[in-house]
Design a protein around this nucleic acid. Structure first.
Lengths: 248, 248
DNA sequence: CTGGACCTTCTCGTTACGTCAACTTCTAGC
DNA sequence: GCTAGAAGTTGACGTAACGAGAAGGTCCAG
């Protein structure tokens, strides 16, 4: 009924977590309705990752199961935070091993580098000569950055891309609320450099799939990311910035 | 030298992860410089949570340790996501057990409820009669919400408060980048309801410590949160919205 | 009566060591 | 040379939550 193996039930009997209502002379364990209800509570807490011994205490003593849950929650949170750190370290290690370190000398949100002039020509070809002026605006901001600040910005950008990649590979839609929340960071990163309105930000989507350098930089983190990222940019422009796309 | 116990070294010898350079006739294990270097790599990978058997394969085969790391990273990410879900479930359970369910019928970002008129009077007393007009603006938005949407908004608000509480209790400063990122969600939640500019948002900080109902609602989630939350609001207004506080 | 399904107890294996216990070896001080 | 103490050694058991397998008993339908 519960989908548990008999072995598990025996284990719970052994450790005293769930005793059968009676054990027949042939050794068979018999469980009643009360045991089923208790089992449901056990399975629920087990789902939450609470250790069996604690489950027993919570169900038996029942005095202040909330406090126990709170402590358990604190454990979970610190465990998650630790994982977060470890993931970041693994990311840095992978980046090191695959020689992505040079990227940290470039600047992310505008995708600068030695190829900066290429990007500018591309932008002007796509959006008109006026668009190139934003480069001056960005320069006004980044010009005063130290090398360290450049690297920080690049690292932050890569972290964001990796979080987006995580979302993509777990099947999350680019217009889901969770992704749009992440895109807020991207939009603000862009806004830091030049005053992109909804339409400009929407147009930016073409760049991440169409511009070879931009695309390559993103693909280095996740080969499947660029088109999904472009969708996310467009979704953010429409859903959060109120951009109304032109009808075809 | 490494801080490991001798037991651990013996274990690594047993499983073949780190063999001594030679074992003397008296059984003593002797390690050389090469072993120390290998140990350093072992400890690093162990820090990342890689299982010892995999560490052995990575260090020995060395063929495509990056791929192994990537797989490990995927494991970590899904583990973290699972933890995230569990934490959310535990939160809901605690809320249920402590009878916080009624809160879901209120609306979070403006802190409405039966005490709505009190809040309005408080706001008008603090910021002048004009400020009360924002209530009409909020009504225009929320008036069309279904009950479900109200509950969703309330739940999202509580989730945000809990994430802020997590940050606070782990010693993170209210003006750190990570917290300001979280505050983006809050600011956008507020913006959904009325057009708060930098100054208005900055002023809002007084409300979360000064208004009894607001304060109580937040304290129910974390008794120490209100003043820290107020600091975070002010920090966000200054650092991300460009608000310039008046000098005293 | 029989085959198969289902039950039992017992034991080992899993991870990465901590913690005894019992014993040997090395080293410093007298 | 003797001795105490520090440090090394090899087992063996315990940890959490069961899975897997061995060896055997019980129940039921045909």
């Amino acid at each position: 009924m519960s989908g548990l193996t008999s072995r598990t039930l025996r284990h719970y009997d052994d450790i005293g977590l769930l005793r059968p209502v009676r054990t027949a002379s042939n050794g068979y364990r018999w469980y009643g309705r009360r045991e089923l209800l208790r089992l449901q509570r056990i399975l629920f807490l087990r789902e939450l990752g609470v250790p069996l011994t604690q489950i027993g205490r919570i169900l038996d003593g029942d005095r202040d199961g909330v406090a126990a849950l709170r402590r358990h929650r604190a454990d979970l949170v610190s465990h998650r935070d630790r994982l977060e750190e470890i993931i970041a370290t693994v990311d840095r290690t992978i980046a090191d091993l695959t020689g992505q370190a040079h990227l940290s000398e470039e600047e992310f949100f505008t995708g600068l580098s030695a190829r900066r002039d290429d990007l500018r020509r591309d932008v002007e070809a796509r959006y008109g000569a006026g668009a190139g002026e934003h480069f001056a605006s960005a320069d006004a901001v980044t010009g005063r950055w130290t090398r360290e600040e450049h690297e920080q910005a690049a690292a932050q950008g890569r972290r964001l891309l990796r979080r987006l990649s995580d979302a993509r590979s777990s099947g999350t839609a680019p217009d889901s609320a969770a992704v749009l929340d992440l895109m807020t960071e991207h939009y603000q990163g862009v806004r830091l450099l030049w005053p992109a309105d909804a339409a400009a930000y929407h147009a930016l989507a073409d760049l991440v799939t169409g511009n070879p350098d931009q695309r390559a930089m993103i693909e280095e983190i996740d080969p499947l990311l660029p088109p999904w990222f472009a969708d996310a940019i467009r979704a953010y422009a429409v859903r959060r910035l109120g951009y109304v796309p032109a009808r075809e």
